[in-house]
Structures are given as C-alpha cells and as structure tokens.
Design a protein around this nucleic acid. Structure first.
Lengths: 335, 335
DNA sequence: GACGATGATCGAAACGTTTCGACCATCCCG
DNA sequence: CGGGATGGTCGAAACGTTTCGATCATCGTC
C-alpha cells in the first residue's frame, strides 16, 4: 500500500509538503500542488487511518449505540441507523455500530481506546445506563430521545408533547369531541421507552384542557390485537368519531382492513391521524394524515451537534423538533 | 488517557514487558503479571486503537456493506446487520457500517486507508459491483448471497435451491398436486436480487420433475396486493390445496387475514408453508410451518470465514447452509 | 541597498504501540 | 564446575502520519 513517502518521492518533495498540500493547512505553490495531486492519483494514495488517529488525535469515527429492544419497530430503527450513517458521512465520518449488549459495554471499550471521536445514542429510554456512561466518558455526544435526567447531555428529538397537542387540536378544530388514541404494543410502555408515553400524556392532558372525551389503549400486533384494541376503545368512547394512531405500520394497516370489513368509511364515518410515524402513509388505502417522525432530521441534527462539540464548546442542551402536520385527506369535519 | 507508559511506570517494569504481559506472546513471571494487571485496572488502561492499527497492522474492524434497497424487508435486513455485529464481537472485532451509496464507494475508501481488516457484503445481487471491488481490493471478505460469478469469492447463503425442493416435497409427500407459490414484491425480482429467484426457479423445476401443477405470483404488500395475488394464483391453479409463501411478514399476515375472512381454514382447506422467512411464524394465527432463513447462521459463518482468511490462506469457496423444516401444523395430507 | 514580511519548502519530533534482538540470572546436565 | 538451554526482562526501532520551528529565496519599502 502506497504511503506518504511514496507520494513525496514521486512528486519530488518532502513528506511534510505532501501533508500540507493535502490538508491545505499551509500554502503550497500551484505547480507543486499539481505534482502532488498527480502522484496521489497515480498511486491511489489514501492516508493510513491508524497513523492519522495516532498523531492527529482525530479518528473520524463515530460510535452509534443502537440496541434493538423487543417491541421496537425494526424498520423505524433501521431508518435511524441509516440516517446517522448518512449524516456522519457529510462530515467525513464513519460509523461504528454497537448493538445489543455492546450498545453499553462496547461504548466504554471504544471510547477508552480512542477509537471514536464521538457518540450517538439511539432510542434512549427515560432511565438509561448509557446516559450515565456518556457523562462519565466525557466525549462529544448526542442523544436521540429525552431521558428524564438531561443534565450535561445534548438531546434531540421530535417534540412529542407538541405532536400530541397538534393531533388533538386538528380534530377538535373539526368539531370532534369523542376521540380515541391507539398506542404501541403494551411492552413499549412497560419498558419506559419515552416517545410513546410523552405523546400519550400530552394528548390526554390537552384533551382534558379542551374538555373533550378521549380514551387510550395500547394495541398488540396482528388482526386480533387490533380488533380488540378498537373494540375496547369504541366501548370506552361511545359515539367515537376520530382515532389517532401512534403505532407501527402493521397495526395501522390492520386497522384499515378492519374498518373496511366493517364498512366504516374513512374519513366519512371515522377520522384518522397517523401520529409520529416513521413510514410513509401515502401508499396506504386510504392515505392517512400524518405527523411524521423525521428520522433524518433528528439524526442529522444529532450528528451536527456532535460535530459542533468536536469543533468547540457547545453547551449541552435539549433540542426539540417541531412536528408538522401533513394533510392527506383522512380527517373530515364532524357532521 | 492513560497509556502503556503509565502502566509500566505504575507497575515498575518496562513498556515491552507490559505489552508482552497483555498479549501473552512471551512468558511473564506470575508476580510481574499481577502487578501489571493491577496497574491496568487502576488506570483503566486500554491500548490506543490508532497506535495498535499502525504498528500491529491489524485494525480489529470489519467493514459491513449493507445497502438497503427499496423493496428489501427492513426487519430481515436489520437481523443480518445485528448478527454480523454480534458474530464479529466474538472475535474481538468491531463493525464499521457502510450503507447506501457508501456501501460501494466507502468500501474502497476504508480499505485503501487500512481502516478495516476484512469485509462482509450483505444482500449481494446476481450482478453486483461490490463483488468486483472485493476482488480488486484483495482483503479477506465474505459475501452473503450467491452472485452469478463466484470466482475468487467466499460466499455463504442458505441453500435456496434445496429449500425450494424441500418445501415442494413436503407437500407432494402429503399428496398435494396443485400448489401455488406466492413470492416477494415484483420489484425484488426485477432488481436481480438472487435469493427469491433461486428459490422460485428450483421450486418450479422440482414441480416439473414431479409432474405436479404449480404457479407462481409475486405479491405486492397490503391487503389489496395480497388479495390480487391469491386470486390470480387460485385462477392459475384450479383446485389448489397448498400454498408456499416466500414473502415478508406483512404479506403472510395479510394472507392469513384474507383466508379467515373467506372461511378458508388452515390446514384443513389449504396447507401453508412459510419458506425462507427471517421472522418468527410461531406467533401467527395459526402458526405456520417454516423453513427459516437463519440470519445468525449465515452471518456467523461469514464472519468465521473472514477470520480464517485473516489467520491464513483459505481457498475461496461457496458454502451453502442446509435448510431445515419446522413443523408447526400448518400443512395436512390432502383428503 | 539594507531589512522585515511573506511564501514555499524542509527536517525532525512526536503520537502509542508491537516486536526483534540482546541481556542476565538461573538451572540442569554431563 | 563449566556451558548450553531456558525464563524473564529490557531497550530501541519501526509503523505513517501531523505539525512545529527553521531555512531560504523573493519582494516591497523606507
């Protein structure tokens, strides 16, 4: 493998000149730079990563802690992982993937061996050992999700509280006063994963504020689970005219199928909103109004914040991403 | 951050002694080893990754090329990624994730800069630029999937041909002679992804050999897509008594729902087999017989093979994993 | 026409390991 | 009791960069 000495020899300069030409940290004569570029091209030279880490004290690698819990919706999880990887590349960073048990223990390992410059934590729950670890390690880091103790942490997330309010208001503005909320699988709430609980609580609080009748049920996957959830909800809110879905794709698909079977039309008989969903509801039948959970936005921002920390001091803080409402025609004014 | 010099000083030995104590490459007095261990403990010392790469010419990092194509079933993809990461850790290796466009271009980048010791390619299609790249780079590598040209490559995969035969035989042994095959979304076949095509072709060939009537349809996702696929299939195979599913979870769930609606009982009226599925069919209603697509087996083996290449010369070859049949009661003899 | 500034280049040190060869006890065997 | 083998330890070189300080030529200015 060609190294910087080879490049220097071919270009007829010293290695420091090559280094400066490549990094642009000192001015180099145009003619010299051209010869160096040619040599680099010819030899297909790329700086040795190890040497660079060692001397440069920068590794250009980010650790991505991405445990996949039971009950987590894999496609959404995947979207976040991909978004982080893509965002990191914009800053010439690569991503080291730490999953499952390694999501915690591996973090310490790679940090202490100076393998990574920074850390991204995915899917943090309200109480998460990884947040303590991040504080301890003192590396630049960003957390996706809002743990209960955010001290010293940089956190990014969709504003789930705002999303809860937004989804409810949309419906009350159209005159709905009897509204159901179908949530994730029960396991998710039990585990203290924070997204869903934050959404639910703010939704319920806003309903109370507005004085409308609401009820919440989690829903298991599969046709049977969805049927049970919907029936429970209908019983709890007699005369229900709208339902908000904060659940994964398969549940939403199953619900639409159930409604079709029963001849319940959307939005004529029932208004529907897909809230904080990471998939595309436009291809559903019918397409559902959606408050998207923007994986790329959160991840891009998380990576950006880590990079800023790397560059200079940025005070740890929480950044909430404003939810948006996309109207695809699945809600209608109550008649 | 503590370095090897600190450890040496605390333990009162030279740095080479520390290095040998840690690597075990030369014998060290028991008492010395203990003092060194204590120092390591006390300082929470971990060797600097960059220095190690530089001198040791081993990075302990594997590149994982995992592009997520449209039409790829995300949970399955995720399972493979996780399995590779987990398998790599068994050999003290970390995984650098290269996705999307970086799945190809990033491969060259990280390889040429000696960031990784080896490469794992996920989801290779029949014709895949990444295989040429792997040949060119000359790094230890393993490929999951069987490209049309396997020369110089180490490939691992489920034996899809055998799986096709296995699924068909199971049914013909039970007297079925009119059998349908529901495949992936059409896009998958158009893109030259090789799993599904291999399965389909061997299934159809075995059917011809046995002289039974079969037909194949791809299936779009969603209730409508599945309904269309099933009806097309029923029309193509009048009196169909069994269906093999080589599709993702949502399609299988949707089909079960459709059959329930129509009062078609499994297995009394229709025998069903879920073939080469990466998810658990035991929680479906009813549970489906399955020929599992063992992500962990393939990935573990791929990582193992890469490690062997790293250790010494292993001739490139193709390893097929024998499919297994798990009986969960969704097939019955034809009456 | 001497002098500080500026631009271009170079040499060498440093980063933290691993590993080779050397060294010195100690031991066993003839 | 001398000498080769063995076990334990050390010093130093090497890996391929980045970067600091130094050098040298050129140039504009007083």
């Amino acid at each position: 493998m060609a190294n910087i000495h080879d490049v220097a020899r071919v270009a007829g300069v010293s290695i420091s000149t090559v280094s400066y030409a490549l990094s642009g940290k000192r001015s180099i004569a145009e003619s010299t730079r051209r010869r160096i570029d040619e040599a680099v091209q010819q030899l297909d030279y790329r700086p040795n990563a190890g040497a660079r880490m060692l001397k440069g004290t920068k590794t250009n690698i980010l650790a991505l802690s991405a445990p996949l819990h039971a009950g987590t919706y894999a496609p959404a999880h995947m979207a976040f992982v991909l978004s982080v990887a893509t965002a990191a590349r914009k800053f010439d960073y690569d991503v080291l993937l730490l999953t499952q048990d390694e999501a915690t223990s591996g973090l310490r390992r790679v940090a202490r061996s100076s393998l990574v410059d920074g850390i991204i934590l995915l899917d943090v729950s309200t109480v998460d050992v990884r947040t303590d670890l991040v504080r301890e390690l003192g590396l630049p880091a960003a957390v996706i999700g809002i743990p209960s103790d955010t001290a010293g942490l940089t956190c990014v997330d969709l504003d789930f509280e705002a999303a809860g309010v937004l989804s409810l208001r949309r419906l009350t503005e159209q005159g709905h006063t009897r509204i159901g909320l179908i949530g994730q699988v029960p396991l998710v709430y039990e585990r203290g994963s924070n997204f869903p609980a934050r959404f639910r609580d703010s939704f319920l609080a806003e309903a109370e504020r507005q004085g409308v009748t609401v009820a919440f049920v989690p829903s298991d996957e599969g046709a049977a689970g969805v049927r049970t959830a919907f029936d429970t909800l209908s019983a709890a809110v007699p005369g229900m005219t709208a339902v908000v879905l904060n659940s994964n794709e398969s549940v939403q698909v199953a619900l639409l199928e159930l409604l079709r079977q029963r001849g319940i039309r959307v939005p004529d008989d029932l208004s529907l909103i897909s809230a904080c969903s990471s998939f595309d509801t436009a291809h559903l039948d019918p397409p559902l109004d959606i408050i998207p959970l923007p994986a790329d936005l959160s991840c891009t921002r998380a990576v950006e914040l880590t990079m800023s920390q790397l560059a200079g001091a940025v005070d740890p803080h929480v950044e909430l991403i404003e939810p948006t409402y996309v109207d695809l025609g699945s809600t209608a004014p109550v008649t």
